[in-house]
């Protein structure tokens, strides 16, 4: 099952996301938590220390393949998700693994 949590800035979506992920893990289901916010702070809500957070390596942009389908650019991971997770995932409490996506590379690219 995949759950997306969205909301206006300041709505508390990251607090809900992190707590939600920890509680799903506590209920017995392994969790892959993906922080897709350019200003990422899901790690802290998941219970990682600031020290660990600072040491997190974001996903390299080269992990993706781009191809054009019906005029739209469709992107997929160039490596299997399990491999990406094994290399870049961070262990959090309650069976949660965190993948932190890189923020946009600079002005005009977002």
């Amino acid at each position: 099952m995949k759950v997306a949590i969205s909301g206006k800035g300041g709505s508390g979506k990251t607090t809900v996301s992190g707590t939600f992920a920890r509680l799903v893990g506590r209920a017995g289901h392994p969790v892959l938590a993906i922080d897709a916010d350019p200003n990422p702070n899901l790690a802290l809500t998941l219970g990682l220390t600031r020290e660990t957070f600072e040491s997190i390596v974001p996903l390299p942009h080269g992990l993706m393949d781009h191809k054009r389908v019906n005029g739209e650019v469709v992107v997929s991971l160039s490596r299997p998700v399990e491999e990406v997770d094994a290399k870049f995932g961070i262990d959090c409490p309650d069976r949660v693994r965190l993948l932190l996506l890189g923020s946009p590379t600079g002005a005009g690219t977002g």
Binding site: M1, P38, E82
Partner: peptide, 18 residues
């Protein structure tokens, strides 16, 4: 990731940008 994450094995939670 969302297309490829194996949800048979675990629950995927995505914190989306605002």
């Amino acid at each position: 990731l969302l297309h490829e994450a194996p949800d048979a094995e675990r629950v995927v939670v995505v914190d989306n940008e605002a």
